[in-house]
């Protein structure tokens, strides 16, 4: 187990180092000068040069990369060019929206997907299976921003139960903040739930045709216990893998939903930083996300061992 962990950690470190080079290089190539973006069309070239110096943008790329990477190692993420505040402050502010949103969405999608998957698998080929998998197909196909708009018109414009968007901040109280996250979480969760339900069903269907399931049934174990105790547990590996991928997606890939609900989350931060060429924010946030994805994958790998005891003894 220790050797397994050490190997995984080493791979994670190498991945991070490579990612930092790629991220930096890509943003080096992207055209656009942050100083010119800030000063606009009426400023002279000399003034833009002045600002470039003030922002520390003069100097060669290698020198700036080493400076940036060195700072990252000491957990110094730099200062935003546009906001002129530490990047880490921006990120923590945004995480206060994105992290709860991702967790709620993940919880919702799991709570919907697992029972639906179980139900469909146990009714394989029957009407219930066809209907629920048809609905899942629809859920995969419908773009989440369109679904989000439907939710807004229903719950905010028509019923007026929930706000149409925006985020009051946790300072405004837990309930108003949760209310603001409800529609976006639902809009995010449903397409994910649809995918997860399909994965759960197909994994279960595979497991249910195994010999040990037939044996368990043959020795008179109740169907319910076979399904929950034997089948689901053995089908969980692909499900957990997908959930890990989904969490990373929910944390970073929510730019569209955050735009529709104008939530101040991480996705919006990156989007804004890219358009304003706030390169340091883009670089640092992307690196943080890379680190998060690697960490989540690590956790998923380790959780396989929890789910499947056979993996615990592998090195």
């Amino acid at each position: 187990m220790t050797a397994y962990l050490a190997k995984r950690l080493a791979i994670a470190a190498i991945t991070l180092a490579l990612a930092s080079v790629v991220v930096f290089a890509v943003l080096e190539i992207v055209p656009g000068d942050p100083a010119r973006v800030m000063l606009g069309m009426n400023a002279s070239e000399a003034q833009v040069e002045q600002l470039r110096q003030q922002m520390g943008l003069d100097g060669g790329p290698v020198q700036r990369y080493l400076h940036w990477a060195g700072n990252l190692l000491s957990l110094d993420f730099g200062r935003s060019y546009t906001y002129s505040v530490p990047v880490i402050d921006l990120v923590t502010e945004r995480l206060a929206v994105s992290l709860p949103l991702a967790l709620i969405a993940l919880a919702l999608s799991t709570a919907i997907a697992i029972p639906v998957g179980l139900y469909a698998a146990s009714r394989r080929g029957k009407t219930g299976d066809v209907i629920s998998m048809g609905a899942a197909q629809l859920g995969v196909a419908v773009p989440n921003f369109w679904f989000a708009l439907l939710l807004v018109y229903l719950f905010a414009v028509w019923l007026r139960w929930l706000p149409a968007g925006g985020f009051p901040g946790w300072g405004a109280g837990i309930w108003p903040a949760l209310k603001a996250l409800m529609l976006p979480a639902l809009a995010l969760a449903l397409p994910q739930a649809a995918i997860l339900a399909r994965v759960t069903r197909s994994a279960l269907v595979d497991v249910l045709s195994e010999d040990y399931i037939r044996t368990a049934r043959a020795k008179g174990m109740p169907w319910r216990r076979v399904l929950w105790g034997h089948a689901l547990r053995n089908a969980l590996i692909p499900v957990v893998t997908i959930m890990g991928l989904q969490f990373a997606f929910l944390l970073a890939g929510t730019i569209i939903i955050e735009n529709v609900f104008y939530l101040p989350g991480l996705g919006r931060l990156i989007f804004q930083a890219i358009t304003q060429r706030d390169l340091i924010v883009v670089e640092s946030v992307v690196m943080l996300l890379v680190a998060t994805v690697i960490a989540v994958n690590l956790i998923v790998d380790l959780s396989y061992a929890l789910v499947d005891p056979r993996l615990r003894h592998r090195t």
Binding site: R160, A164, G166
Partner: peptide, 18 residues
């Protein structure tokens, strides 16, 4: 001043009174 970047979101924001 609330930041509503998306034009499609501006209409429901008005209609809902937010």
């Amino acid at each position: 001043f609330r930041i509503v970047p998306d034009a499609a979101a501006a209409v429901p924001a008005l209609l809902s009174g937010d």
